[in-house]
């Protein structure tokens, strides 16, 4: 088993006719994902790599029974594209787009609370259940099937840790990049809750970074609600306060919370070992299993 996506997931790609959308739709299909439709306003009736394109997500759902979307739409229109997915009552929307205005995301966030659709991202690499489905831009070849769940704020850091796991024969149940923006859909806690409920996930890796308090909240959740063992990693220990380190969310305000140390302390207090290096994270997982 797995969480959120599997080989039954039927995907509509919003923005499939754009450069990124077209390339990654192809990569997703190659990985074995059921990409059943594309949705691009004004491009209805076309085909991309044999995938039928519709003008609206609603039509794609009607015609192809899509239940999840992946969004490769430029930032100016991405908020609207997410709304379209939410208002079409998809089970899942994965927003890859980086640079969506924060006030647009605040409105999306409000709507999220009123629907049953799960949003992953934005500004994220997506989600993969190895051997079954990939929704996003993660390089499929580094993943392997297994029982380790992984949730991370960062794309390339996810790849690094997965690589360390796969090298040792520690395959993954599902890996999720939740995104580096200040306002995101699925949080660490949401993903951890799902991994805890998944009978085929026997250990979890959580990769956080400086900024915000999501990791602290996740630590609290782990301490109170999880039996599945969790190993942690926190990026940004050497980041100077007040500087933005690439991710809009990765800024240490200078007050107590949000620093790497406060996150590491919170995780340790919840019984989560935090690796000093990605290699050490894999050591901890190996110890769990």
């Amino acid at each position: 088993m797995s969480i959120f996506v599997d080989d039954d997931t039927r995907v509509v790609v919003q923005g499939i006719t754009g450069g990124e959308g077209k390339f990654h739709a192809g990569q997703m299909i190659e990985y074995g994902t059921n990409v059943v439709a594309g949705a691009v306003p004004g491009k209805g009736g076309q085909e991309v790599d044999g995938v039928p394109v519709y003008d609206t997500v609603d039509e794609a759902v009607e015609a192809e029974d899509a239940d999840a979307s992946v969004i490769f739409v430029p930032p100016a229109f991405a908020g609207d594209a997410i709304f379209e997915s939410l208002d079409t009552d998809l089970d899942l929307a994965v927003a890859i787009t980086e640079g969506i205005p924060t006030q647009d995301m605040a409105k999306v966030n409000k709507r999220l609370g009123e629907t049953d659709t799960r949003l992953i991202g934005p500004n994220c690499p997506g989600i993969i259940t190895p051997g079954e489905a990939k929704l996003g831009i993660l390089p499929g070849n580094i993943f392997s099937e297994g029982n380790v769940g992984l949730v991370s704020r960062s794309g390339t850091l996810t790849y690094q840790v997965v690589d360390n796991l796969t090298e040792r024969g520690l395959g993954q149940s599902t890996a999720i990049g939740i995104g580096g923006d200040p306002i995101i859909g699925t949080s660490f806690v949401d993903a951890l809750e799902a991994f805890e409920a998944d009978p085929d996930t026997d250990a979890v890796v959580m990769c956080g970074e400086i900024g915000g308090e999501d990791e602290e909240q996740a630590a609290k959740f782990i301490g109170e609600h999880m039996d599945t063992p969790v190993a942690g990693f926190i990026a940004g220990r050497t980041a100077p306060p007040g500087k933005r380190m690439g991710h809009a969310g990765a800024i240490v305000s200078g007050s107590g919370t949000g620093t790497a140390q406060s996150k590491i302390d919170a995780l340790n207090d919840a019984g989560v070992p935090v690796g000093d290096t990605p290699e050490e994270v894999a050591d901890h997982v190996e110890d769990f299993l």
Binding site: S152, S154, G155, L157, E209, A235, G236, R237
Partner: peptide, 10 residues
């Protein structure tokens, strides 16, 4: 990637 570069610094 921001997360991996931060990790490299660390």
């Amino acid at each position: 990637g921001a997360g991996l570069v931060m990790t490299t610094l660390d």
